[in-house]
Simulated assay, not measured.
Amino acid sequence: MRAGLRMLVDGVDEIRVVGEATDGATAIDQARALDPDVVLMDVRMPGCDGLEATRRLQNEGIRARVIVLTAFDTDGYVLEALRSGAVSFLLKDAQPAEVIAAIKGAVGGSPQFSAPVLTRLVTWAIEADRSLTPDSSVPSVPSVPAVPVGITPREWEVGEFVAQGLTNSEIAEAMYLSTTTVKTHLGRLFDKLHVTNRVQLAIRVLEHST
């Protein structure tokens, strides 16, 4: 698998492979030493697995964007990978163009998902939205606060648009703001919610809404 990925990536002019690892611990060491822009991470590896390695990279503040590339797309793996800090989640049967697009997108923080994974994420979002629909047949429960403590309504509105998949430009147009102001709100949301990318932010918004 690694040999095939190296051949694929090395064939793209603007991308260069700087290191390889056979387990999570080595991947962490390589990321520390080589400071790559992107790390392609498998889930199942000897010793420290890919999810734990991703989590440690984020906790250490290593700037590399992590793309999880695996044969396993169970709900637990997808959510745990994104919560751990992965920016994208691809299956190993992804087309070469998908992998290259994910690598290029990761540099700018743009998420990329294999079709089955994206379908699952959309389904979760729809189910979360439906769970907010009032039902007179069940006892009422205390409502979730519209905006988490410490976050302004304006900042939260930006977060909700991110959860809907809008770009910064689209959010700016919808809210009659400049893209610079949108980026400022996003930066504050990242800090206050302790997230590092748009995918994690979207998950936090959806979790708060359920």
Rank of each mutant, 00 (worst) to 15 (best):
V68D: 03
G108I: 13
M45Q: 10
T54C: 10
A97L: 10
D93Q: 07
A102T: 03
D37N: 10
R65C: 08
D42R: 06
R55H: 11
R63K: 11
L34M: 10
E98M: 04
D93H: 06
I62G: 02
D42F: 07
G108T: 15
I103G: 00
I100A: 04
A71S: 15
F72D: 15
Q95Y: 08
Q112D: 07
S88P: 06
V68W: 04
L90A: 05
A71E: 13
Q58G: 08
D37P: 05
V38S: 09
T70C: 06
R32L: 09
D35T: 13
I67F: 01
V99I: 15
D37W: 06
L57D: 03
F72L: 12
L79N: 01
I67A: 01
R56K: 08
A94C: 14
T54A: 04
D35V: 12
Q112V: 12
Y77D: 15
F72S: 10
R44P: 05
K104E: 13
A86Q: 09
E98H: 03
E80A: 14
R63W: 03
D93C: 00
P96I: 07
L90T: 03
Q58V: 14
V68I: 15
I67D: 00
V43N: 00
D73M: 02
M45D: 10
Q95I: 03
P96S: 11
G76V: 11
G76P: 10
A101F: 14
I103P: 00
I62K: 04
P111V: 03
D37L: 02
A53M: 14
V87T: 12
P96L: 08
I103K: 00
F72T: 05
A71M: 14
R83Q: 14
T54G: 02
R55V: 01
I103A: 01
G108M: 11
A81G: 12
E52P: 03
A64K: 05
G76F: 12
V99R: 00
R32Y: 01
F89Y: 13
V43T: 01
G108V: 13
V107N: 11
P36G: 09
A97C: 08
S110Q: 14
A97H: 11
E60D: 11
A106P: 04
F89W: 04
G105N: 15
P111M: 09
Q112F: 13
T54Q: 05
L91H: 09
Q112M: 13
R56Q: 12
P36C: 13
A106G: 08
T70Q: 01
D49Q: 08
A81P: 06
T70D: 03
P46E: 09
K92Y: 02
A102E: 02
E52C: 05
A71Y: 09
